[in-house]
Design a binder for these strands. Structure first.
Lengths: 344, 344
DNA sequence: CGCACATCCTGGAACGTTCCAGGCATCCAC
DNA sequence: GTGGATGCCTGGAACGTTCCAGGATGTGCG
């Protein structure tokens, strides 16, 4: 009755953590019943449920996910591969957690870092017997992704992959860049440059969107594409290249890159948006910083996360699913770095 | 002999992944032997070892970590709690992966996001039966950390915690800020302000370091502390507050915050470092961006990661350990945002 | 030749769960 | 009263590993 004190686990190695049997013994019921109660399944009276719960609390019982999952044959685990250095990936992961919240599935994160490549990140998750893989803008070649998809459901986020076996959740990159250009045109700009993303995921589509939109607006002759990339560094370099012959507006591959552009411009005493308008892409949390106040094209990360998690679970459960590729519409977010063209 | 083709797992739900027994059957040996071979333990002849390996490869066998760990009683898992929105945390996690590489321990990441608080992040790791917890600049009160440390070894990074039960790996924040101030004084500055980190981890120590260093340099009368924080936003706000009465130099709580400061300054046409010197803290990858070129005080993340992982493992194995608190020395990194004082 | 001692291997019992088949009351309808 | 539900509970067999106690062989040495 008052033997509680001694049971608080304190010497880590020594006394092992309490198990179902311990709780069962203390509550005077069977393991199976405790199991029921812990999972909130029907089949126990309110009174016993309370007693069991109490015993569990007193012992500080925590179910062992390994045993649990081993037995049930399912891990209810979704593996997430992402680049820990990318703020936009972080934003997506944040939303993935939110989306997974009420689904009964947990997320297992595996980061790609400068010293830990994608195959390595994936391998860890395979050993954990994840039921599906969510990959944020993976770099692996299509063939590798396809091979992986033969083992378990693979959902790729923020990158297009033309393979029948892998699901894709992305935003309409071309449309988004179209929005950006249209916005600039409406503001009176015609000399609109594009700093691109090189071989990054989505870069090709955004480049195409830029070209199309320019053509659509009768500005095909003014197309100007400057090689960029996906980091601040890349943006800064591109902006420096632009300084000699400034356009009146520039649509940048993504927000990180745009940050680099902005920085070089302000240092060079080029007024934004008075002399030049800048628009980014992603609506990365960077863009939202009030001091940057970057106009951008938002990817609906929340919606994409929901779609991706939903799709991954459907596949894991073997439910019939619809279209292999889910495309979220992008949305223009006007902030302070774009303004009317004051032609020189 | 040629029954290989059919065994490539393809319909996810249908045929379960191969187990030890499958491999054993195919190689014509016992499960136990396969187990030995997979773990590269002695006790099998070179020839059988080869045969088993071959069978495993053909089946695409991957050990099931759940079962493995359940049985062995150990998870060889180190839980990592970190803020996914913080670039510096990402830098540390990157190093943690590197440090864990050859230890036989794996990292289990659990992110803190705006919608997922620390207790929740911790809980996930507890269910995974991690053998120790690495917490990057946790916000939890000391009491909560102490309670946690009663259950399993806890190593806190980048924050001081005065509790006998939790290990701490941090850099000497006060010394680091001392270095920063000394550097500025050497450059001829005397009107040196400090934009602080409020209640953030390490902020109190850095504030103290600033005060001490000012006193030490005979500048006690010039002490000027401006409330800041740990984000770009906070830095921008602090910088705006400073504009009316600019000091000749400012030592900022961290690099993220310094980024905000720099941005506001350049926009206000204040030349850095000609009119004002700015120094950050952390040597976050932000600071290294060439276009920012921020002078800063580097925390030796690689060393801290090694120490933290080492300490966590020692505790998990129950080896005797030395001092509870490990302090890494900070290092001044001079880049482009600090320069000689041109007093007005 | 017999005995100890490697070396290579096997069988079966754990680990902490979940799941299934069933047991024992109690209750209701006929 | 009897038969069948229904509600609450139990015991024991999985799950895929590792670990331990041993069983074969072969080898060296007195």
């Amino acid at each position: 009755m008052c033997d509680y004190a001694g049971r608080v686990p304190s010497f880590h190695g020594e006394d092992r953590r309490p198990t179902l049997s311990d709780v069962a013994a203390r509550a005077g019921v069977s393991k199976s019943l405790v199991s029921l109660v812990m999972r909130a399944e029907p089949g126990a009276s309110a009174e016993t449920r309370r007693r069991v719960q109490e015993a569990a609390d007193q012992l500080g019982y925590q179910p062992d996910s390994r045993a649990r999952l081993l037995r049930s044959g399912r891990t209810r685990l979704l593996g997430v591969v992402f680049g820990i250095q990318h703020t936009f990936h972080a934003d997506l992961v944040t939303e993935l957690y939110a989306a997974a919240r009420e689904t009964g599935f947990e997320l297992a994160l595996s980061a790609v870092t400068p010293g830990r490549d994608e195959p390595e990140a994936i391998n860890g998750l395979l050993q954990d017997r994840c039921e599906a893989l969510l990959m944020v803008a993976p770099r692996s070649p299509v063939a590798a992704l396809a091979r992986l998809a033969a083992r378990l459901p693979v959902v790729v986020l923020a990158r297009g992959v033309r393979d029948a076996a892998v699901d894709v959740v992305r935003n309409a990159d071309a449309d988004g860049m179209h929005l950006a250009v249209d916005h600039l045109v409406r503001l009176g700009h015609s000399r609109i440059a594009h700093i691109d993303g090189g071989r990054a995921a989505g870069a090709a589509d955004r480049r195409r969107g830029y070209r199309d939109a320019m053509g659509w607006n009768g500005l095909a002759a003014s197309v100007r594409i400057v090689p960029g990339g996906l980091t601040e560094e890349d943006g800064a370099a591109a902006a420096r290249a632009l300084l000699d012959d400034l356009p009146t507006a520039v649509a940048v591959f993504n927000d990180r890159c745009a940050t680099g552009v902005l920085d070089v411009l302000t240092r060079a005493r080029v007024e934004v948006p008075a002399e030049i308008s800048v628009i980014g892409y992603d609506d990365d949390r960077l863009a939202r910083l009030s001091h940057l106040d970057l106009t951008t094209v938002a990817q609906d990360t929340a919606a994409m996360a929901r779609l991706a998690v939903g799709r991954a679970i459907e596949r894991a459960e073997g439910s019939p699913v619809g279209r292999r590729e889910l495309v979220a519409p992008p949305r223009l977010v006007v902030r302070g770095t774009t303004g009317p063209c004051v032609s020189r």
